[in-house]
């Protein structure tokens, strides 16, 4: 699957299938600090992501505005 990360923006290819929770664990990301978006839809931790998916992992922590 194609994984899009932000701040700074970069992309990774990760082999599926894999749950959202496992993907975040593999990338060492805290679930409290991000949202996972497939297409334009939020996906929770138990959803299985497939090789063909494009997912954005969007950070939610902000320190400035």
């Amino acid at each position: 699957m194609r994984v899009v990360l932000r701040n700074p923006r970069r992309e990774l290819d990760v082999a599926g299938p894999m749950t959202v929770a496992k993907l975040l664990g593999q990338l060492d990301l805290n679930r409290e600090s991000v949202l996972v978006i497939r297409g334009d839809t939020l996906v929770p931790g138990d959803v299985v992501l497939e090789d063909a998916d494009v997912v954005e992992i969007r950070p939610v922590i902000s320190g400035g505005a």
Binding site: N7, E32, L35, I37, L42, P59, V60, S62, G63
Partner: peptide
């Protein structure tokens, strides 16, 4: 939490600045 406000924006289709200051 800010995860909840971010989710609110995504679901409502509110385009916001994701980049950090």
């Amino acid at each position: 939490s800010e995860r909840e406000t971010a989710a609110y924006c995504v679901i409502r289709g509110i385009d916001y600045v994701v980049e950090e200051c």
